[in-house]
Design a protein around this nucleic acid. Structure first.
Ligand SMILES: [Zn+2]
Ligand SMILES: [Zn+2]
Ligand SMILES: [Zn+2]
Ligand SMILES: [Zn+2]
Lengths: 171, 171
DNA sequence: CCGAAAATGAGACTCGATATCAATTTCATA
DNA sequence: TATGAAATTGATATCGAGTCTCATTTTCGG
């Protein structure tokens, strides 16, 4: 467990942050969002802040519906449309990224200052494993350059069975 | 143009096949499909053959709607549902693969005996560039092994601007 | 031919996501 | 603080890709 060589990237490792550090990190991200909004003549509203906080405090990838359900409890007036709109804003300013899921329901993760990584998706338990492979990215960049392509983003998802879901299948 | 070192993978290079070769290739794929169907107690119908032929003769990635529109002309009774059902069958037997597109409309390509490749998608003209990177695949395999994951398939798509769409953007 | 099983196509339906719009909130300005 | 234009919200309607239903038609072995 101590060999972090092959360690799975942990989503939002709150436990690895001092409370004060975490608070500062949170404030920084909120500010990033606000700056993006102000740059477009928009406001950081209560709802927008709630949604960003929800994504920041999650320890896994969430769908819009999950964010909506979670916040609806403490703010019954919240509307679905606002969550969709806000997540789109967060994507535009680079704070949030879409992680396509199996069923047509997209999930989202906070990018913020986290390093780039790709995903393995378990088709049994829907678990999402994040991983990094600098070599893979390097050869990807090379392929992009060879094509004269200008890459803006990429989506690299591997589907299969995770370590826990490889028991003999039923039926 | 002769240096195939960096050559883009051409989709369905008919020009590179002798007519007789092409005919044989076509027959082989049809037979593969039929064998898969028979194995499940299903029949190779006129509609199913038409749809597979359409995908085989295309020189680019098609959506279900595009296949439907193309075939509707020569067979006005064809229904959308049949195209969806057939494409799903073709995916199940490994002849066709889904290539996720920008907008929620999926596109499909004939896998058949073509080597594995990944895709760059131009967000301006929707062109899809196929490329191969054995080194990338190699390090991907390594990452998969490290996680104890069992990979069934993967989707690696790079979004950006192709060589032809890098002019200064309007407005 | 016959008949069970498979296949089809029209249309209803699902559901994630978007568009509309009246009512509310925000914020710069006075 | 008051004002009003602009932004925001949420209820609702709408969209659209894909699926489901089911009555009718087709297939194919016997
Ligand atoms: Zn990557
Ligand atoms: Zn799993
Ligand atoms: Zn690949
Ligand atoms: Zn292009």
């Amino acid at each position: 467990m101590a060999t972090h060589q092959n360690a799975e990237v942990i989503l939002f490792p709150k436990h690895a942050r001092q409370p004060t550090q975490h608070k500062r990190w949170l404030a920084t991200i909120l500010q990033t969002f606000q700056e993006h909004l102000v740059r477009q003549g928009l406001n950081l509203t209560r709802q927008r802040e709630e949604i960003l906080r929800c994504l920041m405090s999650a320890d896994r990838h969430l769908s819009v519906e999950e964010v909506y359900d979670a916040l609806k409890k403490q703010d019954p007036t919240l509307g679905r449309a606002t969550v969709f709109r806000t997540v789109k804003l967060l994507q535009e300013c680079g704070l949030v990224a879409e992680v396509g899921a199996l069923n047509g329901r997209s999930k989202f993760e906070l990018k913020a200052d986290r390093p780039h990584h790709d995903h393995m998706v378990c088709i049994e338990c829907s678990r999402i494993i994040e991983f990094q492979s600098p070599m893979m990215e390097r050869f990807q960049d090379e392929a992009i350059r060879r094509q004269g392509f200008v890459a803006l983003w990429h989506r690299h998802e591997i589907f299969g069975r995770c370590k826990n879901c490889q028991r003999p299948r039923r039926s």
